[in-house]
């Protein structure tokens, strides 16, 4: 049986108590994406700015549990300033790390991730830096959606920008 300390690692609680890149960005030029977790009503809003194929700025708004909030905070700290392709690779890697249980639960995301994994190279969890602290979440399948909420929003935002969807607010 997984213990609470597997879920609530110190670095996670730190990001929860002191979230990084918290706030909003003016839309436009920034792009705004909302993510909802229908289970708990959590809402994360990701503001992202892409310039010259680089994620130049990113802010997180919304409210939620410690897992969704700290995951969003860690995500922002990790992807900000990176080229869009690297950010996409991180998204794939993070979701692959989170998909272990979604496969066994038969979730749609699991199936998507299987495709993503075979198509593209991902980063091993041990090379994900502090994001690896969220690995314990897979032992609590109900909370996986909390951890992936902001990442799905970021992926959606990057897709929308690539497809030329005008920024919405």
């Amino acid at each position: 049986m997984a213990g609470l300390e597997d879920l609530y690692r110190e670095i996670i609680l730190d990001h929860y108590r002191s979230p990084r890149n918290r706030g909003e960005l003016p839309v436009p030029p920034a792009h705004r994406v909302e993510g909802f977790n229908p289970l708990c009503g959590d809402e994360v809003v990701v503001y992202l700015e892409v310039d010259d194929d680089t994620l130049t700025d990113l802010r997180i708004a919304g409210q939620g549990c410690s897992i969704s909030q700290s995951s969003a905070s860690m995500m922002s700290a990790t992807v900000k300033g990176r080229p869009v392709e690297e950010a996409r690779k991180l998204i794939r890697s993070f979701k692959a790390m989170m998909s272990i249980h979604e496969h066994s639960l038969g979730g749609e995301e699991g199936a998507e991730d299987a495709d993503a994994q075979s198509e593209a190279e991902t980063i091993k969890p041990e090379d994900l830096g502090e994001l690896a602290a969220l690995q314990g979440v897979v032992k609590f399948p109900v909370r996986i959606k909390c951890a992936t909420l902001s990442w799905n929003a970021l992926a959606q935002g990057l897709d929308e920008i690539a497809a030329g969807v005008p920024p919405a607010d």
């Binding site: 213990g3 609470l4 708990c40 959590d42 549990c65 410690s66 909370r143």
Partner: peptide, 12 residues
């Protein structure tokens, strides 16, 4: 505390 975090500790 968020309700989910609270419920997680209560579950333990």
């Amino acid at each position: 505390l968020h309700a989910h975090d609270l419920a997680q500790v209560l579950d333990a």
